[in-house]
């Protein structure tokens, strides 16, 4: 269902890099990548996953998972943990801890605390652990400043460095105004996946382009990097990838 896109991104392996960042350009939606990665992590036995829902609530990921061929409900409470910020706000309203600003803590500080608590309680019993955060730009809508988001990501990167088999995967819609924040988050990790729109316009057989940049080795004066471009099409129940030039307008 989603193997090809994960293969193209190099995220199909059991052991993932410590920090992976997905940059989403304006006018494209990279949420399918989160669902694809989530499905892949859940299929690995004894691999823990923490899903931080910011853009969509948990039900969205459940529905997407069903279409891609996995059931998140089976794993929830076992290998899958969920921090559903949006649902909490919807249920509890202004009494929600995310809006109360308790003990002078900011939203991002509370979030880091919750993520740390989840990792502490689950990491030891799992072979590997993945924290998926979708989507950082929602934090701006919830009142966080750019600096707070940057600090939040620094904390997450530090968390990933503290533990061997812990991976943090973030996504940020830069909306053409958060480019600098995007760069600052991307530099924390070894893999950056940019979801880009087609420069030539809209095409019914292709939704957009993935630009995958991976740092292979950090030298003293330069990094050894690979860059790969693939086109993608999100279908109802799968995601297809093409190499550039593979498909075109047939006359």
């Amino acid at each position: 269902m989603a193997t090809s896109v994960l293969l193209a991104c190099g995220l199909n392996e059991q052991k993932l890099p410590g920090f992976v960042h997905i940059s989403e350009e304006s006018n494209v939606d990279g949420s399918f990548l989160i669902s694809c990665i989530l499905g892949q992590r859940l299929r690995i036995s004894n691999a823990g996953t923490l899903l931080v829902c910011l853009q969509h609530h948990y039900q969205h990921y459940f529905n997407a998972g069903m279409r891609l061929g996995y059931n998140t409900n089976i794993f929830r409470g076992k290998t899958l943990g969920v921090i559903d910020v949006l649902s909490d706000m919807a249920v509890e309203g202004l009494a929600s801890k995310w809006l109360r600003n308790s003990e002078g803590q900011t939203l991002t500080e509370q979030l880091v605390e919750d993520i740390r608590a989840q990792v502490e309680s689950n990491y030891a019993s799992r072979n590997s652990y993945t924290v998926l955060i979708d989507n950082l730009s929602i934090l701006f809508n919830l009142g966080a400043s750019k600096l707070q988001v940057q600090q939040f990501c620094q904390d997450l990167a530090a968390l990933a460095k503290e533990r061997d088999n812990l991976t943090v995967i973030t996504k940020l819609s830069n909306s053409d105004i958060y480019q600098l924040t995007d760069n600052n988050v991307a530099k924390l990790g070894q893999v950056r996946i940019q979801v880009l729109r087609l420069k030539s316009g809209v095409f019914r057989e292709v939704d957009g382009k993935l630009l995958i940049e991976r740092v292979l080795d950090e030298g003293n004066y330069a990094c050894e990097e690979t860059r790969k471009e693939v086109l993608y099409k999100v279908n109802d129940r799968n995601v297809k990838v093409f190499t550039p030039g593979e498909i075109g307008v047939k006359v």
Partner: peptide
């Protein structure tokens, strides 16, 4: 050139 990730290594070298 976006080499910030190796800044410390760069200067150390």
């Amino acid at each position: 050139l976006n080499r910030e990730r190796i800044a410390l290594k760069f200067i150390g070298s």
